[in-house]
Amino acid sequence: MRVLSAGLFAVVGLVLTGGVPAAASAGQGTGAMDYWQYHGHYQTHGQCVAVGEEYLWPHNPGGADDYECLASGGGWNLWLIFAT
């Protein structure tokens, strides 16, 4: 259920923001696919990175495995990446 709901959030995020993150990549040789979850829009790259860092393990056990800040609409969209 976690993957389904996160995928839904990612699709809704794409529709609302018009942003398109890079294609999901294969997890470290496991054949599993990572999924992306839109988190929010920030005015500066620094703000985006600061929030992204807060969601990474070990700062946030059970949190995201990675994140990416993508330029969009004069600011930055934060995408959290979870390995499955």
Rank of each mutant, 00 (worst) to 15 (best):
Q47D: 12
G13H: 11
H45L: 15
Y67S: 01
M1L: 04
V49H: 04
H39F: 14
L78H: 07
H41G: 09
V15M: 09
Q37A: 11
G46I: 01
D66V: 03
N77Y: 10
V3A: 14
P61W: 01
V51N: 00
A64V: 04
G62K: 11
F9V: 06
V11M: 09
Y67N: 04
T30R: 06
V20P: 00
L8H: 01
L8N: 01
E53Y: 04
W79I: 10
G62E: 02
G74I: 12
E68C: 05
M33T: 04
L78S: 05
W76M: 14
M1I: 11
W57Q: 07
L16K: 11
G52I: 10
G75L: 06
F82I: 00
D66Q: 13
S5K: 04
P21R: 15
T84M: 11
A83Y: 15
D65F: 10
M1E: 08
P58C: 01
G27E: 12
Y38S: 10
E54W: 03
T17I: 03
W76A: 10
A6M: 07
I81E: 04
Q43D: 11
L8E: 03
Q47E: 14
C69S: 13
R2E: 14
H39A: 10
P61Y: 06
T17H: 09
G75Q: 12
A32M: 04
D34R: 15
A71K: 14
E68T: 15
A22Y: 03
S5F: 02
N77L: 15
A50W: 01
L8A: 07
S72E: 13
L70I: 15
Q37K: 12
H39I: 06
G52R: 09
R2A: 11
G29F: 04
C48H: 06
S72I: 14
W57F: 02
A83D: 12
G7V: 03
G29D: 05
G29W: 03
H45I: 03
V15I: 09
V12G: 10
W36V: 04
W79F: 09
G18S: 05
A24F: 02
G18P: 05
Q43I: 10
Y55H: 11
H41I: 02
A10R: 13
A26L: 11
D65A: 01
W76P: 06
G19K: 08
L16T: 01
G40D: 05
G63R: 06
Q28L: 10
Q37S: 08
L8G: 00
G13T: 05
G13E: 09
S5R: 07
L14Q: 15
G19D: 14
G46P: 00
H45E: 13
Y38H: 14
L80I: 07
Q43E: 09
L4M: 09
T17S: 15
A32R: 00
V51R: 09
M1W: 07
G63H: 02
L16W: 02
G13R: 08
S25Y: 00
L16D: 06
G31C: 04
S25D: 06
L78D: 03
G75S: 12
T17V: 05
G29L: 09
E53A: 09
F9W: 05
Y67P: 01
F82D: 01
L70P: 01
L14H: 08
V20A: 00
G52D: 02
Q43S: 11
A26F: 00
D66W: 15
M1A: 10
C48R: 08
P61V: 02
A6G: 01
W76D: 06
G29N: 12
T17F: 04
W76S: 10
